[in-house]
């Protein structure tokens, strides 16, 4: 807690590091300072980057209850979770296990009924709408199952969009968007509209859009759910590569193939964590990263 948060995201700082919440498996090793993310450090987001020791996610006893009276649904029944910087976490579970609710809460799209949620040291629960929008814009990169690109906008414009909402100047925006598209191997498709791209390409555009703001956390909701096996491999290879470069990634999935790429697998059932398995160390490469050279994986089809 050596770096106070300032700027628009100023919330109560995280409580002093509490090892008990780090994970249930003894992985309390302090994460060494990551190499800076692939992009240049964000100089336009005050307080956007917490110190290396700060967990990216700190979720404590989060509950989410929908409905009232007879129709009450306990979607989450006390979930506690700490995700360190640089980790690659797969959250698994059958439908109805509460993983979508958890993803919505992690993504600041929904607020928990009770419990606290700290994103990069900021208590998200006390932020108002405008501040939440800013958090989503600068700290979280979303990747959706259905790509969710905006139709009739070129790939470049789609990737530029978060930067536009973030108030980045046009020239800067273009440069960063092109860099992000290059990173996912779509440098030659920047002018294409979503309907002119294959599913895999669309999802890679979405990954680029999520990356472009250099967010603290990449949050992917069933990123390969709508893709064929080749595209799935491409996207997972990109994730591996991002993880190698130090990105923090949380993937919601129900596919074991996808979870196999993660450094840590968390299984949800009936709104509770029933398994928390470490597959690779936080500061190492993801388990399957070395199996295929990423450059080959992202080659265009």
């Amino acid at each position: 807690m050596n770096e106070p948060l300032n700027g628009p995201l100023n919330g109560p700082t995280a409580r002093p590091g509490d090892g008990a919440y780090s994970a249930g498996n003894g992985w309390t090793t302090a994460v060494p300072c990551d190499p800076p993310p692939a992009d240049s450090p964000r100089d336009d987001v005050p307080g956007g980057e917490a110190s290396g020791a700060e967990p990216v996610l700190l979720i404590r006893d989060v509950r989410k209850i929908y409905g009232e009276g007879e129709a009450t649904v306990h979607a989450l029944r006390g979930v506690s979770l700490t995700v360190e910087r640089g980790d690659y976490v797969a959250i698994m579970g059958a439908s109805g296990s509460g993983k979508s609710t958890l993803m919505n809460i992690i993504g600041c799209l929904d607020i928990p009924t009770t419990g606290t949620y700290l994103l990069g040291g900021t208590d998200v629960g006390v932020l108002d709408d405008v501040q939440l929008a800013r958090v989503r814009n600068r700290r979280i990169g979303f990747i959706f199952q259905s790509f969710n690109l905006i139709p009739r906008m070129s790939a470049l414009a789609n990737v530029e969009l978060p930067l536009a909402y973030g108030g980045v100047r046009a020239a800067d925006r273009r440069r960063r968007a092109l860099a992000a598209l290059g990173l996912v191997g779509l440098a030659d498709r920047v002018g294409h509209q979503p309907n002119e791209l294959s599913g895999g390409q669309q999802q890679r555009v979405a990954v680029a859009r999520a990356l472009v703001t250099s967010p603290t956390l990449l949050l992917a909701d069933e990123p390969t759910g709508a893709l064929d096996s080749t595209s799935t491999r491409d996207v997972l290879a990109i994730f591996d590569r991002l993880s190698v470069s130090g990105r923090t990634i949380v993937v919601i999935t129900h596919e074991d193939d996808v979870a196999a790429h993660a450094k840590r697998v968390i299984r949800l059932m009936d709104g509770q964590i029933v398994e928390d398995r470490r597959q690779a160390p936080v500061d190492g490469p993801p388990p399957l990263a070395g199996l295929r050279p990423p450059t080959e994986a992202v080659s265009d089809r």
């Binding site: 405008v130 929008a133 969710n148 690109l149 905006i150 978060p162 909402y165």
Partner: peptide
């Protein structure tokens, strides 16, 4: 849906 996407990637209400 487009509005949802825009909001998810950080469009403030005002925008």
């Amino acid at each position: 849906r487009e509005i949802g996407i825009r909001k998810a990637i950080g469009a403030p209400r005002g925008a």
